[in-house]
């Protein structure tokens, strides 16, 4: 096997086995997402909203989970190594910063796929939900996965300096982005006009608009979707590299444990 591929897969192996052996991480995949799903969908059905709103909530939850798991797994892999005082050893091994990021993101992708399958099965069984347009759905989810990876790169960059604090921030950022991106509502209706141009430049807004458009409730801008996704990814990559090199130069990497 190619050395780089082996190092990437090492992170997948680690992530999968950590989940298998850790109750908290199992609940993160098999319990919490289901509780959140039903908390929102029960509320919407209680309000007697039409089916489009219910479907928007379900699609929004799916997209948000996809983004969340990629970002969280990237930061968790880093933080767990820090907590177990193995981070210094990890960085002294031949794994590169991008192999670490890609490997842990793939591990997060596996978890995201598990949760999406659970969501699809449960919502079909309870609400008769089926994906309205698989093409739009897959493209929307793919862009949100990319947004999760972008966020993960930012958080790892912060982590080289802030250590476990990056872990705390990594819980806040996806929720902030979800709020600003209007996952469960229309951004035009809720936010003031002056804020909309900023919100539209977030890497997640257009992807959620795309998902919502499949039930007639979103208005995606495809050019902005691509430009923001690629643009933010490039910025995150450069930021991560800059912070890594700075940490290596200033001795922060050597003091990570």
């Amino acid at each position: 096997m190619n050395g780089s591929l082996s190092r990437i897969l090492s992170q997948v192996y680690r992530g999968v086995n950590m989940m298998r052996r850790n109750t908290f991480r199992l609940t993160d995949v098999f319990v919490w997402p289901i509780l959140y799903l039903f908390t929102l969908t029960f509320f919407v059905t209680y309000l007697g909203s039409n089916q489009s709103y219910l479907y928007m909530i379900i699609l929004g939850m799916m997209g948000w989970r996809a983004m969340y798991f990629i970002n969280l797994e990237m930061v968790t892999a880093f933080t767990e190594e820090y907590w177990s005082k193995s981070l210094g050893y990890l960085f002294a091994s031949p794994i590169s910063r991008m192999e670490l990021a890609i490997g842990s993101a793939i591990s997060g992708l596996l978890k995201a796929i598990i949760v999406l399958i659970i969501y699809l099965v449960l919502t079909y069984a309870i609400y008769g939900f089926t994906v309205p347009n698989w093409g739009i759905f897959l493209v929307g989810v793919a862009f949100l996965l990319l947004a999760g990876f972008t966020m993960g790169l930012f958080m790892l960059g912060v982590g080289y300096f802030m250590k476990q604090e990056a872990f705390n921030i990594s819980f806040i950022i996806p929720d902030m982005l979800a709020l600003l991106s209007g996952v469960y509502f229309s951004i035009e209706v809720v936010y003031p006009k002056w804020l909309l141009p900023v919100i539209r430049l977030l890497p997640t807004t257009q992807a959620f608009e795309l998902l919502k458009s499949s039930v007639g409730l979103g208005n995606p801008d495809y050019t902005l979707l691509i430009v923001t996704a690629v643009g933010w990814l490039a910025v995150a990559y450069a930021f991560n590299g800059y912070m890594y090199n700075k940490a290596k130069k200033e001795g922060k990497l050597a003091r990570l444990g």
């Binding site: 082996s6 090492s10 192996y13 086995n17 950590m18 091994s93």
Partner: peptide, 16 residues
């Protein structure tokens, strides 16, 4: 959380 053997397998993958 990993067993000794699992952890060593993980590290062995780091060094291919």
């Amino acid at each position: 959380s990993l067993s000794v053997e699992e952890a060593l397998t993980y590290y062995a993958m780091l060094y291919n």
